[in-house]
Design a protein around this nucleic acid. Structure first.
Length: 427
RNA sequence: GGAGAGGUGGCCGAGUUGGCUUAAGGCGCUCGCCUGCUAAGCGAGUGAAUGGGGAAACUUGUUCCGAGGGUUCGAAUCCCUCCCUCUCCGCCA
C-alpha cells in the first residue's frame, strides 16, 4: 500500500510507474475521493468541536447545582444527528478511497528495468558450469518414476492433479534438503528458525498483499476465515504486524520451512507434468525486517544467502532482475534465481528475492522507532526463497543423473541422507 | 463445546455510582546534573492516527482504552453482537 500523501505529491510519477507495470488504475478517481473525504472530515470535526465545548459546559453547570431541564439540549441533539450523517458519508468515501489504495501495486525501484513481460528481464550474472552429458538427459518425472521415488499416478488418485507423492529415498531427499537449508541459514547466515502456522487469517493475507486482489489464487477453509498459506512469507512477515520494533533489533532475519498451497488458477496446461507447478510444495523461506536506509543493500545479502544453497549443491544458475511488467504486486524490486535444467535445456525459477520497501509494512502497520529522531517509521520488509524444495529436487535429479538412470547425491547433502552417495533403482 | 475471569500508551497498571482523565502512577527510553569508571541518585522530557495553518521550528482541531453497533447533550465507564487471551471442565494427537 502506498502513502496517500506521497501519491498526491507525486501524481505524475506514480502514473508513469504504474503504466510501466501495465497497471490501468484511474488515479483521477482517487484524487476525487480524497478531496471529498477531506471536505466531509473538516465539517464533521468542526461540529464535534462544538459538541465537546457544549457538553463540557453542561458538566460545569450541573456541578453548580443547575437542574437538567434548565439546559437547552435540543440544539445539541441536532448537532449530534448532523455529525452522525456526516460520519456515515465519510465512512463510504473512506471505503471507496481505501479499496483504491488496496489494489494499487507497489512502485518499481529505479534500478528495475522497464519492460512489459519476462522477455525483457535483465540477466545479471551466471554461476557454475553447465554439465555436458554423453547421453540425452531425462526429465525428472521419468527419472523419479523409474527409480520409484516419485509417484504421480497415485498422488492424483489420492487428491488430484498437481499433487505429488514422494517415496523412500525421494521422501528422504526432500527431508534432507529442508534440514540442510535450515541448518545453513541458521548456522552460517544468522537467521532465527521459526515454525509458523500454515493457516492464517484474512488480516495477515491483506498485510502481505495476497488480499483483496488475489483471492482466487488461495485455498480457503470453508468453516473458518482461514487461508492456507501460499508461502511462509505470510506468517513470517505477520509476526510483527501492528508492532513497533526497536531500531537496535533490526535487521530481524527469520527462516522457516513450510508447505505452500496455491490454486494455480489460470495456469491450466502449464507445467502439467512433474514437480515444477504443484498445488502443494515445500519451501524454505527467508524474511527480513530492515531499516529503510539499507534495505537495498540487505536485498543483495538476502540474495547471496539464497544463492549459496545452489553453490554448495553445485547447481548452475543465473540471476535475473525482473522488469517492471514482470514484477509481483507488492514488490519494488525482485531478483529471480533460475537453476539450469538439462532436460528442458533452460533456466527455471527456483527462488525469488524481493524488497517490498514499506508496502507491506504500511498494510500490516509494522514500524520501528528511529533512534536519532525518535520518530516512528515503517520498516522495510524483504523475503526470498531459500529455496523451493521441490524444484531443488528437480534440479538435483536432472543435473546429477547418470546414464543408467541413477542419481548421485551432491557431496554436501550426503550427511543428511545417512551417508548414501547414490539413489539407485530398488530391486 | 460448557463455566468463569480478563483485553487501557513501547511495557506494567489505576480508573466501571457516565462530566476538570486534557487516560493517574510506575517501568523503559531521551536529554541534563551529580559521582574520577559502573551502579545508584536528582531534574526535565516522552503515546498513536489523521485534518487545518506555517518555509520550518511549531501551532491548532478531531479520533483512538480488543472490534463493531446502541443509549445519552456527553461513554474507557451503561446496553447488545463479535473477536482474542487466561483458568477450570469436556473432547482429542
Amino acid at each position: 500500500m502506498l502513502d496517500i500523501k506521497y501519491i498526491k505529491e507525486h501524481i505524475e510519477l506514480i502514473r508513469e510507474k504504474l503504466q510501466q507495470r501495465g497497471d490501468t488504475t484511474d488515479l483521477g478517481k482517487f484524487l476525487e475521493y480524497d478531496q471529498e473525504r477531506r471536505t466531509i472530515l473538516k465539517e464533521s470535526e468542526e461540529l464535534k468541536h462544538q459538541r465537546n465545548l457544549f457538553s463540557q459546559q453542561i458538566g460545569v453547570l450541573l456541578k453548580k447545582g443547575k437542574v437538567a431541564d434548565e439546559i437547552d439540549t435540543v440544539k445539541m441533539k441536532e448537532t449530534s444527528n448532523k455529525i452522525k450523517d456526516l460520519d456515515e458519508k465519510l465512512k463510504i468515501t473512506q471505503i471507496n478511497l481505501e479499496s483504491f489504495l488496496h489494489t494499487i501495486p507497489n512502485i518499481p525501484h529505479s534500478s528495475v528495468p522497464i519492460g512489459s513481460d519476462e522477455k525483457e528481464n535483465e540477466i545479471i550474472r551466471h554461476w557454475g558450469k553447465i554439465k555436458s552429458f554423453s547421453f540425452e538427459p531425462k526429465a525428472h518425472w521419468d527419472l523419479g518414476e523409474s527409480l520409484g521415488i516419485l509417484d504421480f499416478l497415485r498422488s492424483s488418485k489420492i487428491t488430484g492433479s498437481r499433487f505429488s507423492l514422494y517415496l523412500g529415498k525421494g521422501a528422504l531427499l526432500e527431508r534432507a534438503l529442508i534440514n540442510f537449508m535450515l541448518d545453513l541459514h541458521t548456522k552460517q547466515h544468522g537467521y532465527t528458525e521459526v515454525v509458523p502456522p500454515f493457516m492464517v487469517n484474512s488480516t495477515s493475507m491483506f498485510s502481505t498483499g495476497q488480499l483483496p486482489k488475489f483471492e482466487e489464487d488461495l485455498f480457503k477453509t470453508s468453516q473458518e476465515d482461514f487461508y492456507l498459506i501460499p508461502t511462509a512469507e505470510v506468517p513470517l512477515t505477520n509476526i510483527h504486524r501492528e508492532e513497533i520494533l526497536e531500531e537496535d533489533c533490526l535487521p530481524i532475519k527469520y527462516v522457516a520451512y513450510s508447505p505452500c498451497f496455491r490454486r494455480e488458477a489460470g495456469s491450466y496446461g502449464k507445467d502439467t507434468r512433474g514437480l515444477i507447478r504443484q498445488h502443494q510444495f515445500n519451501k524454505v523461506e527467508l524474511v527480513w525486517f530492515s531499516r529503510p536506509d539499507n534495505s537495498y543493500l540487505n536485498l543483495e545479502l538476502l540474495l547471496q544467502d539464497a544463492e549459496s544453497v545452489l553453490q554448495i549443491l553445485e547447481l548452475p544458475y543465473r540471476i535475473v532482475n525482473l522488469c517492471t511488467g514482470d514484477l509481483g504486486f507488492s514488490a519494488a524490486k525482485t531478483y529471480d534465481i533460475e537453476v539450469w535444467l538439462p532436460n528442458q535445456k533452460m533456466y527455471r525459477e527456483i527462488s525469488s528475492c524481493s524488497n517490498f520497501e514499506d508496502f507491506q509494512a504500511r498494510r500490516g502497520k509494522i514500524k520501528y522507532k528511529d533512534k536519532e529522531k525518535g520518530k516512528i517509521k515503517f520498516v522495510h520488509t524483504l523475503n526470498g526463497s531459500g529455496l523451493a524444495i521441490g524444484r531443488t529436487v528437480v534440479a538435483i535429479l536432472e543435473n546429477y543423473q547418470e546414464e543408467d538412470g541413477s542419481i548421485t547425491i551432491p557431496k554436501a547433502l550426503q550427511p543428511y541422507l545417512g551417508g548414501i552417495t547414490k539413489i539407485e533403482k530398488a530391486h
